[in-house]
Structures are given as structure tokens and as C-alpha cells.
Write a protein that binds this DNA or RNA. Structure first.
Length: 673
RNA sequence: GGCUACGUAGCUCAGUUGGUUAGAGCAUCGCACUCAUAAUGCGAGGGUCGGUAGUUCGAAUCUACCCGUAGCCA
């Protein structure tokens, strides 16, 4: 009976684009999932955007949009990037969903009813200007140990000290610049320590890698503590049932997002959710994650599931980080590469192949060495593997009308290749992809050696030996076909092209056992082209351009005081309706020492606008002038009347204000764009 | 600072419980071949296995310390 396997990758955070570091995980997971399907197992792969938390709330605010709009937009980008890297999810969802709210509340309530939730009042840094509690990362100040400036509230990047925000000197809120104050608030906690015995047993039982188990032991020895799962308003997330202004901490509902996404898939496919999630299920659950989030997946998550009466994961597969050219990805070196930037220049399957060729089951970091990448992809994929088909097909196409022979020239070679299949499958299963690839390429070497020994190009010159050429090429094409099937989880598109060229249906792993004989194949077209160094260079260049700090020279003047704001989309600009207006009347406002009341003619429509430019302009000097106004600004009630828009002016303020005037020819009412 | 990994040929990596002259791929050099996307085959050079000190008949492998890199410390 085939296995039923539910697989997840960690949920990418919905505040920024996917970069190559993310892709290590999705590619690793996708290869494993495709392998399982190829073997005939039922394998469901779900993921979602992680859409909650303070960073998303603030990012949306910064962009002037709602968090919902932000996560919708980022979610779309993420899905497009994944699709283009051939990541084949069964479902991609969002933690900001009704299913996720349902399961978050359900798990919380079950944990609470079983006595695993407590609450107490804690003191926390609070921004008195923004009226919000500040996560450690949103407080900056001087390190209490080494004095380094601009350090975050939890640790010093210069000397490595860890501390609490309260210990930071000259602390300021990153959000408002205000000095944080301590404020009390009631928080809810999950009693992780209730699950200590269960977790020790579980972790020692092969559900995590050895290195991870070591790390867990360290935590066990330190003693498990309760986990703060609530955050105060304002917060973008789910409100905790039974409270007015408490929200689930984003890390509480993020892993529950796996369930939510799967539940959503179940609804679409008439599948029974509980059959997969009840404690005694015989389905499997695999979570692929980065080593940085082991804590959440190997401690909190199994404890939450256990406490709420659900099954626990079969296996947590943690991987290391990606380095580029041996170093941390760096924006200034151009090695902080977004998935999209890569796709603009290079074929996604090459990254899949290269990473697979170096990826094992350990938590070691993985290096993308770009020189090695070019050489490896070109020599393995093109020079070795595709070359087998290329050099054989030319004979079959030209001399035998595309027809394969009815038997093999060297059945023992074919058997060698198929006999290796189970070993290769074991490597895939164990997520030892680099070993699988090494085996496959060693077999490709054998096929090329075989071809060289038989010298079909010599045999083809003599009519008497011509028949053997067909046998030899039939032999190598059969090896090629099997190797391509073995490689299908890694390079699905090249494999599909190979199937089209051989004119065979979609192959599964077991199709390898029978050779393809007495069969007509199609014309050979290059299945993969070489990586050009220029493409890699262009990718680095684009990464540098889009991400490196723009100017070398420090800006002076207005730019220094008021740096250019974050980039916006053209659509964002389009929302602002700017119009030419004639100032038909300007008057002082009684009781206001900064304002002038302007009557603006928009060409048929007049508007009253209060502008803070009294110190800079005499009313008489303004009358008759053309200027630019924001025409669709929501009217705002002021003490002296309603202001129906605003006029544009430059300058720091006071006497130094300069209103905008259009060039000659502009007329009231014209749109500025 | 504590802890956990890691440091093996120019590059990227294997080296299972310590055991014969330390391996692979790529790169380099020589030769062969010309069917193939200048692809392929055969052969060669290249390493005091981060350093030091130990345990042992024997250490890349075990121990201690040091140096370097990465990560974790809720």
C-alpha cells in the first residue's frame, strides 16, 4: 500500500520577496515531494504565507496600505516566484485565513481547558508616541557592555552580548524615535514545561536529525519554560478568544498555518482532515525548515499538538543556510540575490540541480559558488547526461529513421543502471540528494565510456557493421532514459522534454525496469543549454543595482535631513489625483497665525483650502497664480472651516516655503501625472 | 560570554565503528577520438586532512587547548 505523506515547507514571511536563501528549502522539499510521487506514494505538499505580526503591520503602515493589501500583494509575488522555480504545491494559502483562525482558536481553547495556559502581568518596553509595545528588534540603543551604537534591544552585533531592552543605553523606539517607557500588561503563556517528558522521548526517537537532537538536549538541560503567546493591540493577527485586546503571537498561529492550508486543500478535494491529524493516524507528516526555527518546530509545535489532541510530526527536516561564494549573502557584493533576479537571467532547473548536487540531510550550510555552479551544471547536465542522448540520437535520427532496435547490445549495462535504482531511491528518501546525484552521474560516465569503447562512428562507415550502431545507440538511449527518470525530481522540465523527444508517456520510477525497444523516437533538440558566465555576471549586476546603497557620496542639503522615501509602485502614485488650480482668492484667517485661506478654481469647481504658508506669502501676491493641488484628498475639518485639499509647496517650513507653479500653458483642472 | 556544528587537493565536497601508499567531480597538463551543445575517453601532476600537545602498535577519525567560520541563547 502506498504511503500517505503530508509535507510542508516553512511559511515565508509576507513582508518581502523570496531570495535564494529561501529557495534552498522549497527546492529541497519539492525534490523530495516529486520523488515520493514518482515512487507512487500519495504526497500532499502545502505551504502558505506567514502573514501576521508587528513587522507586517508596520511595513503596511509605511507603505500607506492596509496589512491585508500588503499580504495579498506579497502573497501573489511569492506564488509566482515559486511557480517559476517549478515548486509544485498542492495548496498555497495564508495564515490570515478563516481556517487558520479556527484551528488557532481550537488549539488555544483545548490547551487552556487542559490547564496549559496561564496569564500574568509583565513589564515591557512601550512606545508612548505610537502607543504600542515594542518588540526587542524595534528598540535601538548603545550596547551596555561595549558601548557600540545602534544596537537592537536583544543583543549586540559588535560584541555579541545579550541583554534586555531595559539595559540598553540611550534606547529609542525605531518606530517613532521616542524613548521607550516600561509599561505593564497582562500576557498569556503556554506551559511548555508540562510537555518535558513527552518532548524528550519524542526527540530521542528519530523524529529529528542527530545534530538537532543535541541542540534540544541542551535546551532540556536548561529547563523548559513557559512561552509568551500573546501580544497587545495594536497587532495584526487573531484576537485571543475571551479577551478584548490580546492577540496570538505570530509564532503561535504560523505552524498552525500548515493545518489551515491542508484543511483548505481538504475542502477542495473532499478529503478527511481528521484522518490525517488524529493522534493514531498512520499518515506521515514531514516539516522542512531552516535550522534557525528548530525551536518552534521541535519544541512548541509538538507540545501544542500533543496538548490539543492532534498527531505529532513524523519528522522535522532542518537544513542550513545558503552562502554565496563562501560568504553570507551580501547586498553590496551583489550576492543577495532575489529569486526573481535569478529568473531574469538563469534557468531555474540549474539552481535546482546545483543545490541538489550539494545537498544532504544535515544542517550544514550550503555554498552557492558561482564559478563552481557554471562548471558543474555545464559538465554534468550538458556535457555528461544530455550528451548521451545527443550523440546517440544523431545516429538513430539520421541512419535509422528514428527507430530503436528490438534488443539491447549490452543488457548487463542496462541491468547495472536499473540495479542502482534502489540505492538511488534510498538516497532520495533519506534526503541525501548529493549522493543520489553522484550515483546518477557515475552511471552517466559509464554510458559515455561504453559509447566510446564501441565507437559507433567508426562502425557507421561500414555497411556490414551499421546494424550494430543501431544496437549501441538503442543501448545508450535506454540508459539515458532511465537516468533522466532518476533525475526527474530535480529537473522536471528537462525530463519532460526528454520524454517528448523519446515519445514516451510520463515516466514513473518503476518504468525504468523495462527497456524501450522497437520504438520510434522524435528528432533530438537540445534539452538543456549551457550556462554562460555573462548571465551570471548580469544577475550579480542586477542584484547590485537594485539592492546596493545608491550613492557613494553622502547626501547633503535637503536629502540629508529628509532622505528619499521607500520605493512605491506606479499604482500607488496613481491614487493621488493632482490638478492644476488657479488661486482666485487668498485671505488671512482670523485667529490663525500660520494659515491662509485659499479659494482655488479648478475650472468649474472651486475649493476652499487652508494652507500653512502665511509666513512665506502675502495673500495679494498669490491671487491669480496657478499652482498644483491634491484634489482627491479627503476633506478635513479644521477649526476655521473645512479644507478641501492641499496645495503643494517645497521647503523646510516657516518663511522658507515655495509653492509649485506650472509652466505656461497649463489650465485649471488639468491632471498632473 | 555559554553552547552546537564545521575547518580534507586551485574550487566544491566524500571519507562509515581509529587500520594497508587519503578519495571523487570540476579545474590544470599530456595523449587519443571526432558521433555529440569545443561535448567524450585514457593518463598525469597536485594534499604534513586548521594549529599545537596528548591517548594508541597505529589518528583525517579519539581527548585537551588554541586559531578561524557559521548558527542558537525562547
Amino acid at each position: 500500500m502506498s504511503r500517505q505523506i503530508l509535507v510542508t515547507s516553512a511559511l515565508p514571511y509576507a513582508n518581502g520577496p523570496i531570495h535564494l536563501g529561501h529557495l534552498v528549502e522549497y527546492i529541497q522539499t519539492d525534490i523530495w515531494v516529486r520523488f515520493q510521487r514518482l515512487r507512487g506514494n500519495r504526497c500532499i505538499y502545502v505551504c502558505a504565507d506567514d502573514a501576521h505580526g508587528t513587522p507586517i503591520m508596520l511595513k503596511a503602515r509605511e507603505l500607506g496600505i492596509t496589512p491585508e493589501e500588503l499580504i495579498e500583494r506579497i502573497g501573489r509575488e511569492h506564488q509566482q516566484d515559486f511557480a517559476d522555480f517549478l515548486i509544485e504545491f498542492d495548496n498555497y494559502y495564508s495564515t490570515h485565513s478563516e481556517e487558520n483562525r479556527y484551528y488557532a482558536e481550537l488549539i488555544y481553547q483545548r490547551l487552556r481547558d487542559a490547564g496549559h495556559i496561564t496569564s500574568r502581568t509583565i513589564k515591557q518596553a512601550y512606545d508612548p508616541v505610537e502607543n504600542m509595545f515594542l518588540p526587542d528588534r524595534y528598540i535601538k540603543g548603545d550596547c551596555p557592555r561595549c558601548g557600540a551604537a545602534e544596537q537592537y534591544g536583544d543583543s549586540c552585533e559588535v560584541c555579541g552580548a545579550t541583554y534586555t531592552p531595559a539595559e540598553l543605553r540611550n534606547a529609542v523606539s525605531v518606530v517613532s524615535g521616542a524613548t521607550p517607557v516600561d509599561k505593564e500588561s497582562e500576557h498569556y503563556f503556554f506551559r511548555l514545561q508540562d510537555f518535558g517528558d513527552m518532548l524528550r522521548t519524542w526527540a530521542g526517537d528519530g523524529h529529528v536529525q542527530g545534530e538537532v537532537a543535541n541542540k534540544l538536549n541542551e535546551w532540556f538541560e536548561d529547563g523548559l519554560r513557559e512561552w509568551d503567546i500573546s501580544r497587545d493591540s495594536p497587532y495584526f493577527g487573531f484576537r485571543i478568544p475571551g479577551t478584548e485586546d490580546k492577540y496570538f503571537y505570530v509564532w503561535l498561529d504560523a505552524p498552525i498555518g500548515y493545518m489551515a492550508s491542508f484543511s483548505n486543500w481538504c475542502e477542495q478535494h473532499g478529503e478527511d482532515f481528521d484522518a490525517w491529524w488524529r493522534p493514531d493516524t498512520d499518515t506521515e507528516l514531514y516539516h522542512f525548515i531552516g535550522k534557525d526555527i528548530v525551536y518552534f518546530h521541535a519544541l512548541f509545535w509538538p507540545a501544542m499538538l500533543e496538548g490539543a489532541g492532534f498527531r505529532k510530526p513524523t519528522r522535522i527536516c532542518a537544513h542550513g543556510f545558503l552562502t554565496v561564494n563562501g560568504q553570507k549573502m551580501s547586498k553590496s557584493r551583489g550576492t543577495f540575490i532575489m529569486g526573481r533576479t535569478y529568473l531574469n537571467h538563469l534557468n531555474p532547473e540549474y539552481l535546482r540541480y546545483y543545490l541538489a548536487a550539494k545537498m544532504g540531510s544535515s544542517v550544514h550550510d550550503l555554498d552557492l559558488s558561482l564559478d563552481d555552479f557554471i562548471q558543474r551544471v555545464n559538465s554534468d547536465l550538458v556535457g555528461k547526461l544530455v550528451n548521451i542522448a545527443s550523440r546517440s540520437a544523431s545516429f538513430i535520427n539520421k541512419r535509422f529513421d528514428g527507430r530503436l532496435a528490438d534488443h539491447l547490445e549490452a543488457p548487463e549495462l542496462y541491468r547495472t543502471v536499473t540495479a542502482r535504482g534502489e540505492q538511488i531511491a534510498r538516497h532520495y528518501e533519506d534526503r541525501e540528494f548529493s549522493r543520489a546525484i553522484r550515483e546518477i552521474m557515475a552511471l552517466a560516465d559509464e554510458a559515455n565510456q561504453y559509447f566510446d569503447e564501441r565507437k559507433p562512428w567508426v562502425l557507421a562507415k561500414d555497411a556490414e557493421t551499421l546494424e550494430r550502431v543501431q544496437l549501441i545507440c538503442t543501448q545508450t538511449l535506454n540508459v539515458f532514459r532511465v537516468l533522466m527518470t532518476y533525475l526527474k525530481p530535480v529537473v522536471p522540465r528537462i525530463a519532460a522534454r526528454a520524454e517528448a523527444f523519446l515519445q514516451i508517456p510520463e515516466q514513473t520510477w518503476s518504468d525504468a525496469t523495462e527497456p524501450l525497444l522497437d520504438h520510434t523516437i522524435g528528432r533530438f533538440e537540445p534539452l538543456a543549454t549551457r550556462v554562460a558566465r555573462e548571465s551570471v555576471d548580469a544577475m550579480l549586476e542586477e542584484s547590485r543595482e537594485t539592492l546596493a546603497p545608491k550613492a557613494e557620496t553622502t547626501p547633503t542639503g535637503p536629502l540629508a535631513d529628509n532622505p528619499i522615501a521607500e520605493q512605491i509602485e506606479i499604482g500607488d502614485f496613481g491614487k493621488v489625483d493632482l490638478r492644476i488650480a488657479r488661486i482666485s482668492k487668498a485671505a488671512q484667517v482670523d485667529g490663525a497665525d500660520k494659515l491662509l485661506q485659499l479659494t482655488l478654481d479648478l475650472g468649474g469647481e472651486t475649493r476652499t483650502v487652508f494652507a500653512g504658508i502665511r509666513a512665506a506669502y502675502e495673500p495679494a501676491d498669490l491671487e491669480g497664480k496657478l499652482t498644483v493641488m491634491v484634489a482627491n484628498l479627503k476633506p478635513r475639518k479644521m477649526r476655521f472651516g473645512v479644507s478641501e485639499g492641499m496645495v503643494l509647496a517645497a521647503g523646510p517650513g516657516g518663511k522658507d516655503l515655495f509653492i509649485l507653479e506650472p509652466d505656461n500653458g497649463a489650465e485649471p483642472g488639468m491632471k498632473v501625472k
